[in-house]
Design a protein around this nucleic acid. Structure first.
Length: 923
RNA sequence: GCGGAUGUGGCGAAAUUGGUAGACGCACUAGACUUAGGAUCUAGCGCUGCGAGGCAUGGGGGUUCGAGUCCCUCCAUCCGCACCA
């Protein structure tokens, strides 16, 4: 067999790798470790399209390269197999989500294996497998049994907190807790009933039950976390989302807000992702201020502000419509109007609010408050531009220096005061922070920055406010009223949420007769028969959200079979953190933030040894569809080629990209594609039908989905792997275009031919290589090494092509060149490399061969042509000895007759020599 | 509105610290060969000009002997956040 028969080769080696467990990984302390992780996929029914494997190919190249470099590489794959689509499908078909999920996973594994990935399948995880979610539930228990101590800056056992309460109560405590936590002395704590003690502890636990305004999606029948809502609709399905007050399981991620923010500075992640997380956390430094209410001596409106320097310009106060004071302080005259407004604001959906941010609405309560610093009497208004969920749900309005307050004051004719010089408040708000404070008593003449500090100091001195750091991030809703997720391991005894014991895990998802809510509106788990704790108590009926199982899975890969712990200490100590994590940027504020949160929590408990789980993150760009169009002449069965369509009245139609090549339509296949096209007629250009092109999302309805299996069949996995890398930078979004795969395929065939003579006989010799051959080889080794280290895979493919072109021209058949080159190629095109490696006589797989080392001596030549430029313009060339020093080159240039002629006797200012590049004479 | 990224031939793209812009591939053109193939090989291929040359990295300006790369400014496209006080 002397032809490059990729089908036979790829089949042979995929079977070999699988049968011999070539990629099985064990802890090996004699080698440095490398943990290379892909974001594990959700196994959807549609299977993989050509865009999905992009990141996997990149991480596989790195993994194979690192193995060749002597690293012990952990490169696993698994499935994020709980989730809504399987459940929606189950609702439609009645088929158990576990069944469809298993089928989909089987298909995914087959497709992945077709591409020759070096995964250790013995470490595969599935989040929906009870042996896996046992540990997801276990981590839930640990979170429930922990609270966050702000003084020590870490999570601690809830037992410490009980001790603290019985000794000192909670008045001295500096903990992450609910806003409405009451003060309790040690005595009072002792007098609380068991239920009351539980309720108080819930206000500290890191998973807790809480009455909160949540995102409720009626169509999906569940609540959603903030990151699962985009533009007021659900991320999955695009259904409208409402605000609703519900008792819910929550995760106290806000406890970690500051550490999540600080940690970003220590990790090698793309700046956009870090920035998105920073915005999501939304730290702002300011102050809270209490405004006493006229006529309510016991009440203060508390506002949060970052601009206390403008306090003298605060001419009114605005409450959110949901603010607790609204009903109490509204005067009789204003009552009707206020009630109408509150009702109207409540019924507006999230969507309405977001699309309608510009209109200014609000209403006066009739109440007045006192500016605690200036002493001015200011009216209290209600408006929905103030958000109940941020800060204190109330603001001091400074219309002169805030655009929203300005618009509001203009509309309702409220006073606008100028307290920072530099703008023109008769025209617009001046929100800038450069300028001197004016009209502000003791703050006059200060810079904004100084005035903020002085303002806070005065407020604290007067006891009317204090410095406060505020975060935009909210605690995450953790319960989902759905079936296909991890059951929350909780039961209710006398109204108290009790946890299952470690030994009772996993709490296995019960079977139900339908995947819909019960008649009484309970989640689907309410349908389970006899599903009671010890036959007595009701279980919690909500399940965990999709992100629960994915927030710790990289630890499970370290020790996937362990049934004593989520991973052994030995495995965690050895593998530590993920060295390279590749995945899409769509997880920036979801998975990647929750994972960091759980990791930090596990770190606090001493269960893991890394504060940050993913040292380096790379976002692979999504591959978009490249749709093709044909143009049908109206009311006919004639199709006109792209360039001529302007001459006709046409309707564009999506055409299957698989019957188009190089943007030319295959007419016969087109006729066969759909029966109504069987007798189609064509108006051609140069005898060809050119199709139109547009970039869109890859989807079935647009007929632009390219299936990797088809390309593997047609070109082979090695070609597809290299072509996906060749397509452009990994991080970049780009449309898929099958044109050009030929180029890579040709390269692999030419590579193969290097090992054979023209008659097709094995022709590798033991001859000594020439310096030209060595140069071609070492240049390539060097380039590939650099490229893999900086994840620039596209240019590697180019370099391989250059190398093969050079070796073909040199007619190289020498083992000393071809053997190391095969090893260098192996990470990119593992099948052909294995085959040639074995034909070269190696009994062992190439996987653990040694990556060759490049040597400088083969790369240099003794002489080099320098272009000589005068004032930056190239005038001549001269050959220099490369080993010459800069000074020697300078002298030689000045002495050169040619250069003297060019200079025409003008004096030389300086000579610039850039070794290997250029000599420039400046006159 | 705020934040981030990107902009180079017909197309995908290279250019790692400022040093001969367009490597490599696709498409295209011409030629060779032939068991006529979706094969292989050779040459050409930014624009302009017969030519030496001139002009070219979204537009304009600047720093420099020298700028795709650094600075200022404007434009376009994409992404994220969005009444966050």
């Amino acid at each position: 067999m002397s032809e490059y028969d990729y089908r036979a080769i790829e089949q042979k080696w995929q079977r070999f790798w699988s049968e011999n467990k070539t990629f099985k990984t064990e802890i090996d302390k004699s080698k440095p470790k490398f943990y290379s992780l892909d974001m594990f996929p959700y196994p959807s029914g549609a299977g993989l399209h050509v865009g999905h494997p992009l990141g996997y190919i990149a991480s596989d190249i790195v993994s194979r390269y690192k193995r060749l470099k002597g690293f012990n590489v952990l490169h696993p794959m698994g499935f994020d197999s709980f989730g809504l689509p399987a459940e929606q499908y189950a609702i439609q078909t009645g088929q158990h989500p576990a069944e469809t999920t298993t089928q989909n996973i089987a298909r995914y594994i087959e497709q992945l294996n077709n591409l020759g990935f070096s995964f250790d399948w013995d470490r595969e995880v599935r989040t929906s497998d009870p042996s896996y979610y046992k540990w997801t539930q276990w981590i839930f228990l640990q979170l429930f049994n922990s609270w966050y101590n702000q003084d020590t800056g870490k999570a601690e056992s809830i037992e410490n907190l009980k001790t603290e309460f019985s000794l000192r109560g909670n008045t001295q405590l500096n903990a992450a807790q609910d806003e409405d936590t009451p003060h309790v002395t040690a005595d009072a704590w002792a007098r609380l009933s068991e239920k009351e003690q539980h309720d108080l502890l819930l206000k500290y636990r890191l998973t807790f039950l809480s009455e909160a305004v949540v995102n409720w999606c009626p169509q999906l029948g569940t609540v959603l976390a903030n990151d699962e809502v985009k533009d007021g609709v659900s991320e999955r399905g695009g259904y409208p989302v409402e605000r609703k007050l519900m008792k819910q399981w929550m995760m106290r991620i806000t406890a970690y807000a500051d550490r999540l923010l600080q940690g970003l500075d220590t990790i090698d992640w793309p700046e956009p992702v870090k920035e998105m997380q920073r915005n999501w956390i939304g730290k702002s430094i300011g102050a809270v201020l209490h405004f006493p209410l006229k006529g309510h001596p016991e009440k203060n409106v508390t506002v949060f502000t970052t601009r206390i320097d403008t306090i003298f310009g605060a001419s009114f106060v605005v409450l959110a419509p949901e603010h607790e004071f609204v009903t109490e302080i509204t005067t009789a005259e204003q009552l009707a109007e206020v009630q109408a407004y509150v009702a109207w604001a409540k019924n507006r959906s999230e969507r309405d609010r977001m699309t309608d941010v510009k209109s200014v609405t609000g209403v006066f309560t009739g109440a007045y408050a006192v500016n605690p610093i200036s002493g001015d009497k200011v009216p209290v208004w209600i408006a929905d531009y103030v958000l109940a969920g941020y800060g204190t749900g109330a603001v001091m309005a400074v219309p002169g220096h805030d655009t929203r307050d300005y618009a509001f004051a203009k509309k309702f004719n409220l006073p606008i005061l100028e307290v920072v010089a530099g703008g023109d408040v008769s025209k617009e708000a001046f929100a800038g922070k450069e300028g001197k404070i004016i009209n502000s008593g003791f703050l006059n003449g200060m810079d904004v920055k100084d005035a903020i500090l002085a303002g806070i100091a005065r407020a604290e001195e007067l006891g009317v406010g204090k410095a406060r750091i505020n975060y935009r991030m909210r605690d995450a809703v953790f319960g989902r009223q759905r079936y296909w997720g991890e059951p929350v391991p909780v039961y209710y005894k006398d109204g108290i949420a009790e946890l299952l014991d470690d030994s009772e895990l996993p709490l296995v998802l019960p079977d139900v007769d339908a995947y819909l809510p019960t008649e009484t509106g309970e989640p689907p788990l309410g349908r389970a028969q006899d599903w009671k704790y010890r036959g007595e108590f009701e279980y919690e009926l909500s399940t965990m959200p999709g992100w629960a199982g994915s927030s710790w899975y990289w630890y499970r890969y370290m020790d996937a079979q362990n049934d004593q712990a989520f991973a052994s200490k030995e495995a965690i100590d050895y593998w530590q953190a993920v060295d390279l994590y590749i995945g899409g940027s769509e997880h920036a504020t979801g998975h990647l933030l929750y994972s960091r949160f759980w990791n930090k929590f596990l770190f606090d408990l001493g269960l893991v040894n890394q504060d940050e789980p993913f040292k380096k993150l790379v976002n692979q760009g999504m591959i978009q569809g490249r749709s093709n169009f044909v143009y049908r002449v109206k009311n006919s069965n004639q199709f006109v080629s792209f360039g001529l369509k302007e001459n006709y009245d046409v309707t564009p139609l999506h055409v299957d990209v698989n019957i188009v090549e190089n943007d030319v339509l295959d007419l016969e296949r087109f006729k066969a594609w759909r029966s109504d096209f069987a007798d189609a007629e064509f108006i051609l250009e140069d005898g060809k039908y050119h199709v139109g092109v547009e970039v869109e999302k890859m989807s079935k309805s647009k007929h632009n989905v390219v299936n990797p299996d088809v390309l593997v069949e047609e070109y082979g996995a090695d070609t597809l792997r290299m072509y996906e890398m060749f397509l452009g930078p990994l991080e970049q979004f780009k449309p898929w275009n099958t044109n050009g795969m030929d180029g890579v395929y040709k390269f692999l065939r030419r590579f193969w031919k290097l090992f054979y003579d023209e008659q097709g006989n094995w022709a590798v010799t033991a001859d000594q290589p020439t310096s030209a051959e060595l140069k071609a080889l070492h240049k390539t080794i060097k380039k590939i090494e650099e490229d893999v280290e900086r994840l620039s895979f596209g240019t590697s493919v180019s370099q391989f092509m250059i190398c093969v072109n050079e070796l073909t021209a040199l007619k190289t058949k020498k083992r000393a060149i071809l053997e190391p080159l095969t090893v260098v190629l192996a990470p990119y095109a593992p099948h052909i490399a294995e085959e040639l490696w074995s034909r070269l006589g190696h009994a062992e797989t190439i996987t653990y061969a040694t990556f060759p080392t490049w040597q400088e001596e083969f790369l240099t030549e003794s002489t080099f042509d320098y272009p000589i430029s005068v004032n930056g313009k190239v005038r001549s060339k001269k050959t220099f000895d490369l080993k010459a020093t800069k000074e020697e080159v300078e002298k030689a240039v000045l002495a050169s007759e040619q250069v003297q002629k060019l200079l025409e006797g003008k004096p030389v200012k300086k000579v610039i020599v850039v070794p290997g590049k250029i000599v420039n004479v400046v006159i």
